[in-house]
Structure formats: C-alpha cells, structure tokens
Design a protein around this nucleic acid. Sequence first.
DNA 1: GTCTATAATCAGATAGAC
DNA 2: GTCTATCTGATTATAGAC
Lengths: 195, 195
Amino acid sequence: MAERDQSRTRILDAAAATLRARGLAGARLSEIAKIAGMLAPSLYHHFGSKDELVEEVMMEGIYHNTRHIVSHVEVLGSGASPIQRLETAIRSHIDFLLTGDDYSSAVARVFDDLPDDMKKRVVAAYSGFDNYWRDLIVAAQKDGSADADLDPTVVRKFLIAMLNSSSSWYRPGKLGPAQIAEQAARMVISGFAAR
Amino acid sequence: MAERDQSRTRILDAAAATLRARGLAGARLSEIAKIAGMLAPSLYHHFGSKDELVEEVMMEGIYHNTRHIVSHVEVLGSGASPIQRLETAIRSHIDFLLTGDDYSSAVARVFDDLPDDMKKRVVAAYSGFDNYWRDLIVAAQKDGSADADLDPTVVRKFLIAMLNSSSSWYRPGKLGPAQIAEQAARMVISGFAAR
DNA sequence: GTCTATAATCAGATAGAC
DNA sequence: GTCTATCTGATTATAGAC
C-alpha cells in the first residue's frame, strides 16, 4: 500500500472511531487529526471537507457490514433453511457491531443526523444491505416457516433498529457479544412469549 | 395559566418539535424562537441556556411517555395477563410516538448526543420508565407465559430501541400507527417464525 | 417581556511557508 | 505532506433600550 493510502486509512479509521464515540456534530476535525497523528489542516490534503470524510466513512461502513453478513450467510450453503440463514445474519450483524467495527457503529450512530443530500446517497448505498435483509425475510415467509402476516419492510426496520441499538448500550460484562447475539436471534425468531 | 407559563409552554413545544426534526446540534435557538413567535435572545428571559431548555424537554418527554403508557396499561385492571399488559404497553408506546408527541420523539432522537452530565440526570429520570417495562417483562416470565431464558434487561433494551425507531422511519401511508403497533406487538410477542 | 446590537466562542476551511 | 497563522461563518449568549 502506498504511503498516501496509509494516511488516508489512518484518517478514516480515526474518523470512524470519533463519529462512533461522539456523533456527527461532536466529532471535531481536530480530534480526528490528533488520533491520526497530525493537525487538522493536514486532513485537507486527503479530503476536501468534513462532509466528504464523513461520507466515505458511511460508505465504508455499509460496505464492510454487508460483506461481513453476506459472507457468513453464504457459507451456510444451499442446504440451510431461510430461518437458519436469517439467524446467522442476526448473529453476524451483532457480532460485527460489538466486536468493534467502528465504521458500522458510526453509521448506526450518525445516520439520522446526516445532511439531507448526503443521506440520500447513503440511503442509496444502503439499498443492497436492505435488500439482502428483505430477501432473507421474504424467503422465510414464502417457505412457510415465518409469519406471513408481518410486513417485510416493517420487520426489517424494526429488526435493524433493534440490532443497531446494541452498539450504543452494550458494555463488556456478564453477557458477551455472542450471548447478546443469541438473545437477539431467539427474541426475533421465537418471540418473547413461551411456546 | 399565567402568561409567563404560556410563553414557557410555547417555547418548550417549539423546542421539542425542533429537536425531534433536527437533532441536538441541528436545533437552533433562532428556529425555536421563531416557532414560538419571538427572537432568539428573548428565550433567555425564560431559560438560562440552550442546555437548560433541552433538559426540560427531555424531562417532559419522559414524564409524558411514562404516564401515557402506565395509564393505558393500568386501565386493563387486575384481570389482565402479563402478556396482555405488555402488549398494551407496546401498542401504547408506538401510538404515542407516531401520533405526534414531539417530546417523546425528541428524547428518542437526541438522547445519545446529550452532554454527559445532562445524560446522567436524564437517565436517572428514565429509571421509572425503564423499571415499569422491566416489571412487565419479568411478570410475564414469572408467570410462565414468556421465555425465561431471555435476559430481561436485554429484552427491554432491544424492545425500546425497536419501538423508538419507528418515529424516525414512519411516514403516514399504507400502514397507520395502529397497524405498525400491531406489527410490533405481534413480532415481539409471537416472534417472526411461524407457529 | 421582547427587541436591537453586539460580544464571545468555536469549528471548519484556506493560504502559504517549509 | 504537514505545519503555523489566519479567515469565515455560524451560533450561543449578553447588554441595554423600549
């Protein structure tokens, strides 16, 4: 990797960590620069503006997250049931968020606050991710293994909001990422009521 | 109500609407003042600072929301099962958010971005709300009607995050607040998988 | 109790040396 | 490619007239 790319990567990493921790307005260029080992004006050699930097973090986050989930689900092979595939996606998403991917956590944290024009582009980039979840949900319904009276879009919105929230309240303790993921999968698929 | 209280209330309403729509950093005192029918410096006659105003909106939001949910649940009377009570709380919470309470939506939107010291106080005020949900959850588990292997705290966090998210993605359309609430209750209690 | 005018602060962004 | 110095613009907050 070229030196230039190393600096870019360090800046992006620093921006993702800062956005995750402080939100959009709270993330100062001076802090991002400090973590990346430079001063704020130096960032402008690599990025045109704060917005440009933020947007690249969003795009990376979405890309990383999608790839991570898809690769875990697809490893199951064609023998897996739709519900098994959905369960794997849920576990994989939580694990990704809680095991420290700053990029996807940054997306979860700042998405609502993005300026409208950037949000449009980020939503467009998100569509692959959304569609993937939607397909998992619809497949389980077509298969007869899931409740067909639930609206797939509503299920997806609720599900992703619930999973994403974990990055804001999770603290290492009694329950680790795997246990949280287990709880999420159980709650979503089987529901809270006893069978 | 005294004139002074009227102005205060107008300002609080305007702040809640603006916080809900624009987030913490995006909510400008000039916009809040304009909605309240005055100019920004006039706000300082009623509130000491932006933070003070924001904190009062948070406290009102939590108070409104808790009262709304509790009153709907308690109306069920002592004959209702724990699951019925939980279902009522879910429906009531969604309905409250989507039928336009700016205060509780503002809490959902800006909570993560609050400055640390204010957040501590807001969390403390939230404890009554959290405990009420927790009691609903634990009661259903003790009763044997809910999955006792789920951690009550994790269930509560996931549940509230999921319900709160609706205020950011809901738009009046095919499904109204009551239908969204119905979907949420069904998804949480029965789960996504077919029985 | 609200206004006009203005101060104080702060963060993003630019210019230009090295 | 990073620095120091500076500018710009926006926003909270204050002073004091009315």
